[in-house]
Simulated assay, not measured.
Amino acid sequence: MSETAEIPVSRVEWKGAVRIIRSAFPPIDLFEDVADPADWPLLISAEQKTNPRIVATIGNLDLVPINRRVGGNGASYLMAPFTHVSIDRPSRFTDGSYGVLYVGDRFETALFETIHHHARFMARTRQAPGWTSQFREIIMAVDAELHDLRALAGAPFPALDSYSYATSQALARHLRGAGSDGIAYPSIRHPGGECVALFYPDCASNPSQGRHLDYHWDGQRVDLVRDAGSGAVFRIVDLPPDPD
């Protein structure tokens, strides 16, 4: 892909970046431990003797190079997207054979990205209206040299197509194979927002849990979001496109 040589690389440093995930996924003890990540295979081997389901909990650790693994408090939020992958769950920058950590530059960006995909799932599975899955906000820092597509916001660039992931997956596969740490790109669902697709967990740090959220499905879209802690309910208003 000769056009990738023209993609600039920029340093992305975000202190209050946000990822929103399903609350159904609990922290993984191994990743939260203070043990050296290089010792994890030995710990897994020992744990399997009493807990045969440990591998299913941890996922495929071999998908993350030893020198790119992270551990300690909150590390599950960084490691799990890379060890629990499936070709049945492709996304914009992966066909599902490898993991990607998607993070928004702010809460609103992560929110609009998440409710878009949640609404598509609810529509495909013909879910009845009502309050649905619970989510949690994860706040973290991002610090990485990334291939930068943000200057292409609003441009007809195939890798930023609203619905087709064919070109974006091919681009990401090529960049990752060439040693890239990830991609910075304009949010497709939140005009003016920015996102990153990180290819390795050590491109982010200091993850901490923020708010618990509930989404309301009205039969066609996610129209309400509730802060489960305060009980405050917010109506989702479609954002206008960026002005020219």
Rank of each mutant, 00 (worst) to 15 (best):
residue 202 D to K: 04
residue 119 A to S: 13
residue 71 G to W: 07
residue 120 R to H: 07
residue 61 L to W: 02
residue 84 H to P: 02
residue 154 G to H: 06
residue 7 I to G: 06
residue 52 P to S: 14
residue 144 A to Y: 04
residue 64 V to M: 06
residue 18 V to Y: 03
residue 132 T to M: 14
residue 107 F to W: 15
residue 68 R to H: 14
residue 227 D to W: 04
residue 99 G to T: 05
residue 83 T to K: 02
residue 194 E to N: 11
residue 216 H to M: 02
residue 222 V to S: 06
residue 235 R to E: 15
residue 151 A to M: 09
residue 242 D to I: 09
residue 27 P to H: 03
residue 243 P to S: 07
residue 106 R to L: 07
residue 144 A to Q: 06
residue 111 L to R: 07
residue 117 H to Y: 15
residue 149 L to E: 11
residue 68 R to A: 13
residue 118 H to V: 13
residue 154 G to E: 03
residue 27 P to D: 14
residue 163 Y to I: 10
residue 31 F to M: 11
residue 98 Y to R: 15
residue 92 R to E: 12
residue 162 S to F: 10
residue 113 E to N: 05
residue 216 H to L: 05
residue 230 S to N: 11
residue 117 H to E: 04
residue 198 L to E: 06
residue 167 T to G: 04
residue 21 I to F: 00
residue 135 F to Y: 15
residue 39 D to T: 12
residue 175 L to C: 03
residue 88 D to N: 13
residue 69 R to W: 03
residue 134 Q to E: 15
residue 78 L to C: 07
residue 78 L to W: 01
residue 236 I to V: 15
residue 199 F to G: 03
residue 100 V to G: 01
residue 147 H to W: 05
residue 239 L to R: 11
residue 90 P to G: 09
residue 137 E to I: 11
residue 101 L to V: 08
residue 114 T to W: 02
residue 137 E to K: 10
residue 34 V to H: 11
residue 161 D to A: 05
residue 93 F to A: 07
residue 228 A to T: 14
residue 120 R to E: 14
residue 200 Y to A: 14
residue 18 V to D: 05
residue 61 L to Q: 01
residue 142 V to T: 10
residue 194 E to W: 10
residue 62 D to G: 10
residue 50 T to N: 14
residue 119 A to D: 00
